[in-house]
């Protein structure tokens, strides 16, 4: 029974791990990957001499940190609000609606963004800026707005998902704590500070550490498709994933793409191990392994 699945996992997951060695090779398709000559650390030397190496690392980490901080605050806040709502129907409707953005593909998200920001026919240029007498903005070629746009889009898409996880934890907090607190005359603020937040503490820490362990990875579509692969935005939207893709598919610079990919895999792996180690220190049961 186990054989078909194990074969698939071996091919799909383990062979590419071995394939990481191409970061140390100069690939020549004609003689094949295995016979291509070894070049030692050459690919890495080239990669780290470029300006992009710094840009993509900085972008990937800074965007992820922003998502973690803002995303957590909003998701926890909304989960608490949701928990305050007594009407079942209303609560369920809110839950359904805020999860919706999570279910659609990033390609469709890029259409939604385009509907607002398109230079000629976008809603913002035509229906907000024009009545105010402001000249239309060419959004897809103005880099300074994009850090905000990327963050808003990312939060819009993901806050419902983490909110549901936090809400599920909140529902599990024993109601008698709150009853006792009300009898003691604790205000809503005090209840939140002394019951709700401590109840959420361990799940917040776990989800945050999970995100930190993925800090070297980014949602390819968010950084490639949503800014429509616009050249003017590349400095501000290039992450390790988009860099690897462009190196592979557009520039045919396999050496650098594989070096960047290798860098991502190894550092990502170290971060997962580290994050798990820390989770284990805080709460044995929540550790991944």
């Amino acid at each position: 029974m186990l054989i078909p699945g194990c074969i698939y996992i071996f091919i799909n997951n383990y062979i590419p791990m071995g394939g990481l060695m191409i970061a140390f090779k100069k690939i020549n398709y004609r003689i094949g990957i295995l016979h291509s000559p070894w070049v030692g650390l050459k690919n890495f030397e080239f990669l780290f001499k470029t300006k992009e190496a710094w840009t993509i690392t900085r972008n990937t980490i800074l965007y992820n940190l922003t998502f973690i901080v803002i995303g957590t605050v909003i998701a926890v806040g909304v989960a608490m609000l949701l928990n305050q709502i007594r009407q079942n129907g209303a609560r369920k409707s809110y839950q359904t609606i805020i999860l919706l953005p999570h279910l659609i593909s990033i390609v469709v998200v890029s259409y939604l963004v385009f509907g607002f920001l398109s230079t000629e026919s976008g809603f913002v240029n035509n229906s907000i800026l024009e009545p105010l007498g402001i000249a239309p903005i060419s959004w897809y070629s103005t880099a300074k707005f994009w850090p905000y746009i990327i963050v808003i889009v990312a939060i819009w898409k993901s806050f419902g998902y983490s909110c549901i996880i936090y809400y599920a934890t909140l529902v599990g907090i024993d109601k008698s704590y709150y009853e006792a607190a009300v009898i003691d005359g604790a205000s809503r603020w005090k209840q939140m500070k002394h019951i709700t937040l401590p109840g959420l503490k361990s799940i917040i820490i776990i989800l945050t550490l999970m995100s930190i362990s993925k800090i070297f990875y980014s949602d390819f579509g968010l950084f490639y498709q949503v800014p429509m692969n616009s050249g003017a935005l590349i400095d501000i939207t290039n992450t390790i994933d988009t860099y690897v893709y462009r190196g592979l598919a557009k520039l045919n610079n396999i050496g650098m793409a594989s070096a960047a990919g290798f860098f991502q895999s190894i550092v990502g792996f170290v971060l997962v191990i580290l994050a798990n180690y820390i989770v284990k220190k805080i709460d044995e049961d929540s550790a991944l392994f």
């Binding site: 590419p16 191409i22 690897v244 793409a257 895999s265």
Partner: peptide, 21 residues
């Protein structure tokens, strides 16, 4: 064997080469 694939991956470039070549 299964769990390790959640921690470590070869990434896009080797996978792409394997599936296409």
């Amino acid at each position: 064997f299964i769990f390790f694939t959640m921690l470590f991956s070869g990434g896009l470039v080797p996978s792409y080469m394997m599936w296409t070549q």
